[in-house]
Design a protein around this nucleic acid. Structure first.
Length: 190
DNA sequence: AGTGCGATTGACT
DNA sequence: GTCAATCGCACTA
């Protein structure tokens, strides 16, 4: 997906990414899925990692939109975000869930045989299924990295909007987007 | 140098 | 539905 197609606005990008694909070409084969759940972490949001400025950990949030910000959380898992504004502006969209498309058998190997709709349902599960970690922090998802954003295989259904999951600051803001009634979505689905 | 907590998950009741 | 594990990071001193 070309960078020029991506809205230069964090909340719009979060909505825009629903229905697009995330692809990882590994030596064992291609892993891909439809993005069915996202969350926006815009400029000025106290829940965003970038809120207190750039650090070694969050510097990828300050790259041009379309770059990956991958971080490690709860001592066990990774989460992948898409930087969402112009260079030097810190904001991102968290990818929370995928509907698996290609490489399902390989994903099941990464996820100890979970059922298909559970393979990438949740940010930690998504990165485990697609074998994504800090190696990919800062890569360009609109470039030639083995991970990239692809065009939709089918148009998204109705898109729902809600409060974000698992945060305490700015908890009232409706910055979570999801494809309604899709079983691969974590948390509320309508 | 020490501390508190988090954009979660899987095991268990 | 409930709950503990787990450790990197940012903040305080």
């Amino acid at each position: 997906m070309r960078r020029s197609e991506l809205p230069v606005n964090t909340v719009k990008l979060a909505r825009y990414l629903i229905g697009k694909t995330l692809v990882h070409d590994t030596p064992q084969g291609r892993l891909s899925g439809r993005i069915v759940e996202t969350e926006a972490y815009p400029v000025g949001d106290a829940a965003a990692h970038s809120f207190r400025g750039k650090t070694a950990r969050n510097q990828s949030m300050f790259l041009e939109r379309g770059h990956a910000y991958v971080y490690f959380i709860y001592g066990n898992w990774h989460a992948i975000n898409v930087a969402s504004e112009r260079k030097d502006v810190g904001a991102a969209v968290l990818l929370r869930a995928l509907e698996p498309l290609e490489g399902i058998v390989l994903m099941q190997r990464h996820r100890s045989g979970a059922r298909e709709h559970d393979l990438a349902r949740g940010p930690g599960r998504l990165t485990t299924a697609l074998d994504i970690d800090r190696r990919y922090d800062g890569v360009d998802l609109c470039g030639r990295a083995p991970i990239w954003l692809g065009t939709p295989v089918k148009p998204p259904g109705r898109i729902g909007r809600s409060a974000r999951i698992g945060i305490t600051k700015e908890a009232h803001r409706l910055l979570r987007f999801f494809e309604r009634n899709n079983p691969c979505v974590s948390g509320p689905r309508n």
